[in-house]
Write a protein that binds this DNA or RNA. Structure first.
Lengths: 342, 342
DNA sequence: ATGACAAATGATTGCGCTATCATTTGTCTC
DNA sequence: GAGACAAATGATAGCGCAATCATTTGTCAT
């Protein structure tokens, strides 16, 4: 009477495979990691054993022994914003084909949470980190520098990057939008912003500066909230801005497209004609902006491309290539559409 | 002349901290993992050494020694769809407070890529997995079962879940939408769908069945594409459906809200009145649907809540709690709005 | 004070793998 | 066919930590 083969009672190790294939453990390791160092015969033989047993290497043991984790840590403020998931997609699309894994954390826009999360990431001994912006706590920056891990800060251009940096200047973008609206003939230009994270702040400051230079800035033309941005909040800020200015604004720069859509939809309900009564300009150029009626003027920023480039920078660095710029300006482009047509 | 203290030339280990604090390595380990097992005095002393040196434990060594990875593997089809990132947010919000890390992969809707990615995940010895749907390859399912890792399949209810399952029945949802539109008096109901992943297929089949039952199904009332869903594609499918049916449809069920928005925006451009000339119903109930004009009838599915529950199920299981259902139906709700008002 | 017991701390070992070096086998030249 | 060299394979050690068991210290009742 045959005894049924027990179903993998304990987890398989290299040695189990080695025994099954009649070779030494290290040969199995080579088949997995450096197959060209093993003869065709043994390679096939070992691979067969691996497949039959359903062996999956323990990455922890491997990482510990080789001090190579094959992990890239990524930190973004939130998963609820397409802006960051688009960048993320770029990162994933590059890293997926390189054997690196992504350990992703979200910080809910809080530097303190970010510090905690980055500690977590560092304990996984990542080979590199991609983090958002430059708003880390001092402690967090120290941790990063001490860890000697290559770091790319993304989304915005920083005065003092920790290491590598890729993004664009939000201040300048805000300045340019305001200038553009002025050139289009608008002169009582409002601003609505939500969340008010560092990048939104910068866009607002750039905007403010441009208006101040031509003496057209008015404090009450600005409506903001610390709440997370959304279409709903866009509608509310729009209404409150109109109320507090008695409706004299002739254009509004919305800190992002969600807010702009909210403002646009609300204006439709209020029977305010865009752009005839009021112009709207968004930021980020999400897909809806191109298709909504009237289509929404916005600022295109290459998010996906930024993710791609950030990941490529990381890979290059990990391959020992120290050529190339450490700072990349990905720029932006004002997409003029119907919502600001004069 | 003092010699400057060299900046952490090599990485710190438990032992370095132990030496600095004048205790044994295992005591440092205890301070980190079971602080209540260490006297107040030593705990403070050791913690000080940890902070001073900026010590971060090596998670690989820890995981190898304890066979606890504190990693949960998560697999979703794409990062470009708010449907999945909403679920993800729920998952993160639960797991962030439990010391578990999320290793996230995207499969680009391909079962083969999924298999590859799940291999990667398994090599990290995750303590549990949250994966999307039931469309895994046979090999992949075997790997998962062999691994003995708790698995939650999310997004849809499955006939034969691998382990735990949380979601709702897409077929029934499609059926219910069609029934609802029929009840509202629409009788020439079209369908547009993109990507055509298993869940969209199911919605379409349910839709089809409901119409067939009242003899109102017509093959050419369906327009689909394997392309990824988007607002742009929604507009195109809308136009092609109108063309191929000579505009006789009086309502369209769009497989998701992006498509529905595309259809709506296109209808505005074509001067087709929604809902007077044509009704539109979406699926997923994203934020824009509530605010667009006319507001869009859609099917609300608790994505964030689904993520929360999936993560909670995982945590419960990991805490040894085997009570509670293995399958959870999160349901859905048709949100009737202006785009289908009669 | 003494013994009994709990709490606090430490020494040793091994998790599963790869780096390193050692050995064997194969291949080529003359 | 002997020697020289490269290719293939193996043996050993150690990555950094926690499980396990051993020892020390502290606490209390008697």
């Amino acid at each position: 009477m045959k005894i049924a083969k027990p179903v993998s009672e304990k987890k398989l190790t290299l040695i189990d495979v080695a025994v099954a294939a009649g070779v030494s453990a290290i040969t199995v390791s080579r088949v997995i990691n450096q197959p060209d160092k093993v003869s065709e015969t043994l390679r096939v033989q070992v691979q067969k054993a691996i497949d039959t047993l359903g062996y999956i290497p323990n990455q922890y043991a491997s990482s510990l022994a080789s001090s190579k984790s094959k992990v890239i840590g990524v930190s973004i403020p939130t998963l609820s914003n397409t802006v960051f998931t688009d960048v993320l997609r770029g990162i994933y699309d590059v890293l997926n084909n390189t054997g690196y894994k992504v350990l992703l954390v979200d910080t809910h826009y809080s530097p303190l949470e970010e510090e905690k999360m980055i500690r977590t990431l560092l304990s996984q001994a990542p080979e590199a980190m991609i983090i958002t912006g430059g708003d880390q706590t001092r402690t967090c920056q120290n941790l990063l520098q001490k860890s000697r891990v290559p770091v790319v800060q993304i989304m915005e251009l920083l005065l003092e990057p920790l290491d590598m940096n890729i993004g664009f200047c939000h201040w300048q973008a805000g300045y340019d939008v305001a200038t553009h609206l002025l050139e289009e003939g608008y002169s009582r230009i409002g601003f609505i912003g939500a969340r008010m994270d560092p990048r939104v702040q910068q866009r607002m400051q750039g905007f403010k500066k441009a208006l101040e230079e031509v003496d057209k800035f008015q404090k009450n033309f600005i409506a903001t909230t610390p709440e997370p941005s959304s279409i709903a909040v866009g509608g509310e800020l729009f209404k409150s801005l109109l109320a507090s200015t008695n409706g004299v604004v002739d254009a509004i720069f919305c800190a992002n497209d969600d807010l702009a859509l909210g403002a646009l939809f609300e204006s439709q309900r209020m029977n305010i004609k865009v752009p005839d009564d009021l112009a709207l300009c968004g930021f980020n150029d999400i897909e809806a902006s191109r298709f909504v009626n009237p289509s929404l003027t916005s600022v295109q920023v290459g998010r996906y491309e930024m993710g791609i480039k950030a990941a490529e920078m990381v890979i290059k660095r990990l391959n020992g290539d120290t050529e190339g710029p450490k700072v990349v300006d990905t720029g932006y482009q004002i997409k003029k559409r119907e919502s600001t047509r004069n």
